[in-house]
Design a protein around this nucleic acid. Sequence first.
DNA 1: CACGGTGGAGTAATCGTTTTCTCAGAAGCT
DNA 2: AGCTTCTGAGAAAACGATTACTCCACCGTG
Lengths: 334, 334
Amino acid sequence: MATISDVASLAGVSTATVSRALNGKSTVDPELAARVLAAARELGYQPNGPARNLRRQEAAVIALIISDVENPFFTAIARGVEDVAHAVGYSVVLCNADENADKERRYVDVAIQERVAGVIMSPTPTATNVDLLINRGTPLVAVDRPLPERPSDTVLVDTRLAAREATEHLMTQGYQRIGCVTGPSGVRTADDRLAGYRDALRAARMKSSPRLVRRTEFKAAGANRAAQDLLAQPEPPDALLVANSAMAIGVLAALNEASRRPGRDVGVVAFDDVPWAELVDPPLTVVAQPAYEIGTVAAQLLLARIADNTRAATTTTLGARLIERESSHRGDLP
Amino acid sequence: MATISDVASLAGVSTATVSRALNGKSTVDPELAARVLAAARELGYQPNGPARNLRRQEAAVIALIISDVENPFFTAIARGVEDVAHAVGYSVVLCNADENADKERRYVDVAIQERVAGVIMSPTPTATNVDLLINRGTPLVAVDRPLPERPSDTVLVDTRLAAREATEHLMTQGYQRIGCVTGPSGVRTADDRLAGYRDALRAARMKSSPRLVRRTEFKAAGANRAAQDLLAQPEPPDALLVANSAMAIGVLAALNEASRRPGRDVGVVAFDDVPWAELVDPPLTVVAQPAYEIGTVAAQLLLARIADNTRAATTTTLGARLIERESSHRGDLP
DNA sequence: CACGGTGGAGTAATCGTTTTCTCAGAAGCT
DNA sequence: AGCTTCTGAGAAAACGATTACTCCACCGTG
């Protein structure tokens, strides 16, 4: 594996010159530079990253720690981050914390040890050992959920308002007993969506009942049980607000099994616009979150903070958009 | 940022002893070890990764370069790789090449420069500069598609056979003019699925016509246009084999727009079982590939090769499973 | 002409580990 | 006791880049 000194001796110059020629940090004689380039190419020279990072005390890498690689919402964020980061020469490494505090801890440790330039993450409720990051002054941006207790740059969606609007939309459609299936307590987005749901009920002077609300992990299986459970009650809900797309799958499956048709029998609005939302029968009404944009904004904030870590922490809140389809239309029932 | 010598002086020992105590490579006096551990904890010591990797000449990291983060098939592979790698102390960094040879090149360069322990990738048809990896002797496993021209450990699905069986299934159901929407020429899985489709036609002595086949990128938009195009013909297909789940979305949308019902009017089988396959109307018949298992097997092969790079290259071929649902059932038409 | 300034290249220090030596002392053996 | 063997710990040499310094030659100016 060719090193910089191999290149240097082949080109007949010093390692310093090779470094300068290759990085363009300082001007070198064009003729020497050409010799260096030729030598590097001939040897197939690839700089040793660890050595470079050790000396520079920083890697041109940003770590993106997301809570679920299988959730299209997060992969869309990832694409946004990548596009911005690559444009300015940073690499992005994607880490899948899987809504698991241990894995999150582990990846944060890796990020610290590898001395990445910055971290973007959607923190778990405990957000264990992000303090380590903060104490070290590693630039950090939280996405989707704020960091509990600690200030930091944050990119959020006004999900409480969106949940309220979605619920109000269901009311407008004439649904009377609206239920909610949301994520685990402590996960900010789950809490906010529930709060927005309650905001809407309160504003309409509808009484909210715990029997209409279920909380489970953000997965299809849990939501499926929750929905079955809701529907089995004496007075089942006639509409449901569902907190993400994986859950929507579980809920729709439960409705199928119970032979209730979305829209006609039970109104459904789910968070996250997914490619298949228009294909299910009836098409699914969704709250579309600007996931890609969350990624681009987060990456820009992170780059700005890498450049200047003294800026005050900012919170950017993006809006969501209700996309009405048939799953929230009652039809012409009395 | 505390270094190993800070720990050493706080514990009153040499850096060598600290290193040994922390890595457990050699025996150190239990009392000293305890002092070291205490000092490390007190200082919040985190080893400097680049320095360690520089010295060790290898990072405990494996790079996973996939062609599309937004494709559930690849994210499932990623989870398989992660689970195996983490169990033995390796970190996984996920890189999204986005079916783009440039991005792939870039990530391969990063992998080389960072001296990762190994690489798992689903190569683009050109697979630019994997030669670099091979020449350097970096352990490499190809998944989903073989590396063109070069031998390497490979984990594949017998996708040609699966395509054949899926097509035969459509024949059994009574469809007469079966079409195929597959991916770009050169991408092995796209070619194989087309070949399997043709195998089935040939075996049944049905004539295959280029007018029944369309190739486009593995995305919904392209498949949508392809399907519209197929359906607009004078003699449109009465069934379609679709090469992945994103394409299935485009195809199903086209059928909707053309008011043709999957199953009854046009039989549909798509590759990749996705969570929403049972929710569309009618439920989608799919070829389920063992994605998670591809990931675990690939990771095991890679670890074996990291341990011993002299082994001969092996190819593991896993089977796929047809899951029959209604989109490939004609009903009782004459 | 002398002198300061400048540009370009080399020398060597440096980053923070791991690991090879080296060595002292303990232990085992005859 | 005298010898070898072994154990455990410290000193110091890597690892391969970047970069602060140094030095030389050359240029322009007073």
